[in-house]
Nucleic acid binder design. Sequence first.
DNA 1: AATATAATTTAGTTTCACCTAAAAAAATAT
DNA 2: ATATTTTTTTAGGTGAAACTAAATTATATT
Lengths: 220, 220
Amino acid sequence: MIALTISEENYLKALYHLYQPDEGIGTNAIANHLNTKPASVTEMLKKLSEKKLLTYEKYQGVILTKKGYASALNVVRRHRLWEYFLVDKLNLKWDEVHDIAEQLEHIQSDVLIEKLDMYLGHPKIDPHGDPIPDKEGKMCIVNCCCMSEIKLNTKAKISGVKNHTTAFLKHLDKIELVIGKVVKIKERNEFDQSVALEINKKVLHISKDVAQNLLVEKVK
Amino acid sequence: MIALTISEENYLKALYHLYQPDEGIGTNAIANHLNTKPASVTEMLKKLSEKKLLTYEKYQGVILTKKGYASALNVVRRHRLWEYFLVDKLNLKWDEVHDIAEQLEHIQSDVLIEKLDMYLGHPKIDPHGDPIPDKEGKMCIVNCCCMSEIKLNTKAKISGVKNHTTAFLKHLDKIELVIGKVVKIKERNEFDQSVALEINKKVLHISKDVAQNLLVEKVK
DNA sequence: AATATAATTTAGTTTCACCTAAAAAAATAT
DNA sequence: ATATTTTTTTAGGTGAAACTAAATTATATT
């Protein structure tokens, strides 16, 4: 594998996250995701295309190649392992780790990552409920769906978040909706799409915005 | 404190390491230390001088200001804490950690470093025997001197290395001269400045180059 | 003190990753 | 089908941090 710049890695990661089946990813979407401008994206796509990390044709949207996908997954792996480390070993809060992991993910050293993975005990899921790819890019399938799509009166376990912003994560802490908690969906309001949950006999009302960003797993 | 670029931090660190009392540091020395060219150094010195991190006047050599010194020490602190982490927690070998720590030292997050320091138990000495500055820049005085300057028949404990290259550290591993080992200086050869050591009744001959790069502490 | 050598600085380029403004292509609406 | 809007690309520029080559200043030697 050729060494990539931090920017290149960030583009690959963005493409990984923006991927939708049967859709090329647009310049605007990428620019938006990376807080940059479409013109800058076009340039970078040309470069990455020359490196065979993605297939790019003018105006056609972009798709990662096998090689590009593997590189992207590798960045994701590093990011999630570091997040796990920060929370599990250094006791940082789950809302504090994203920006730090954004930096740590770019440290170049395969040995480091292998040793870190070993030290952490080969974790499979990061603190936000996202799966951690292994060395070969394999990761467990998280059998989850969005809280706003689940049927009434089902029991479900909070298994992850879609939104990784500090604001959202802090809000979840405040209402004590942390990963692992088991809830029962009691009511969905037509008017504002808010949801009523039952947690240990108590009722908790959450807004549509919260429900839409929560991932849950059905529980028997 | 203003955020510095990786390059700026590397220059400050170089200046810290190159410091000699009553001497301005020359452009050539810096360029050499950073594997760059004197012309590039001049440019950077101007920039750092504008940021009040050092005092610079054309052709006069350069000296860190209080502010610059503090920033440099902070980089050194981060570097050494990460080295400690890599060896103590991840079980990397002491000759593998330098390049990785060179990258990790630039991660920007005060919280991270405080948590890391706490997690490691506030270590005072890194795996190469160098003192780790605390948050305020204070560090313990390592009362050591060069193996090639020590008197005959003194007992001494290996306490650090001057040379941090992989080649040197691997060599030390091979001859089992690791930090903490207690030796007695038995003989110094006029001819090649090589040194004979006694370690547990056995005799070990080390070259001038090894002796010059080993730091020792006298032992009663 | 004059000259040779070494160190340092200036001037002019390069590369990377970004930018703005304008042009071109594609998608959408009338 | 044409016009409008949106998306994407091109063209030209910027700042950071490096570079080379040439000029300048400092130091060392005779």
